[in-house]
Amino acid sequence: MRNIFIFIRVYFNFLFFLFLMGVSLYMLFAYNKYHQTVYSAVANEATGALSTQYNKVQYYFQLKRTNDSLVKANENLYNKLKADFELPDSTSNKVVDSLKNDTIPSARKYLYLSAKVVRNSVNQQNNYIIVHRGALQGIAADMGVIAPNNAVIGSVMEVSGNYAVIMSLLHEQSNLSARLKNSGETGTVVWDGISSKIILLKDISKSVKISAGDTVVTSGFSDKFPSGLLVGYVKDIINDKSSSTYTIRLTPAANFQNLQFAYIIKNFQADEPSQLLKKVKNK
């Protein structure tokens, strides 16, 4: 017993070093699996508050670009107004309406919630976006996030009271179901961690005809995004002869460099399919 104490005293610095190394490595590898840790909620609020202060200054320098993107988004919405279209005159002909009550109820499925981006990075291996809107304002984990130009930027990973951490598309674990707009072929969008200007679309079969500039949109298979939101444009194709599928390099549609606003998509019907799936899996 005495020898153990002597050993500990002699090698205390080394043991302390091993202890601190162990703590940091544990945090690093455990965070990926269980990112609802106690300290991260506290850290979120603290760093979020500081980032908000910084963003107040930085936001000013990007006002012009932010304004341009919002004007474009507005233009898009104006063009969808009912007043833009002339309906055929149906008042003069008599039609008997046999359907007295509308039997198809319409229910809202998606709700868009705006949020201010306070911190954003593009040059890390795993990039996160922090927005100033959290659980108290209706944000929950696993919601989809888009930029003002309708381009996907990521999904909510973690929320604290007033802030939410978004896993950007530029993240090693990001995984998005997308399809080619022309052919309808679906694949998975991932990031290889190298350049913020390129994301990869995988699992597209080689029978599909693809040309540069093709649009890639969300498939609507996941419960986070409605179908048809922009993801990116085809840049070129990596022809891997050993596999039967293409890996396509995309230019992301969202401009990750200067994000100032984001819309978080709330899906009201997300629970039902997932519960159903759970039921099937239990059988």
Binding site: V23, L28, F29, Y31, S40, A43, Q124
Partner: peptide, 13 residues
């Protein structure tokens, strides 16, 4: 630094 980059332990090690 990790608190800001949300990679707990990556820079600490």
């Amino acid at each position: 630094l990790d608190c800001f980059t949300k990679t707990y332990g990556l820079h600490a090690a």
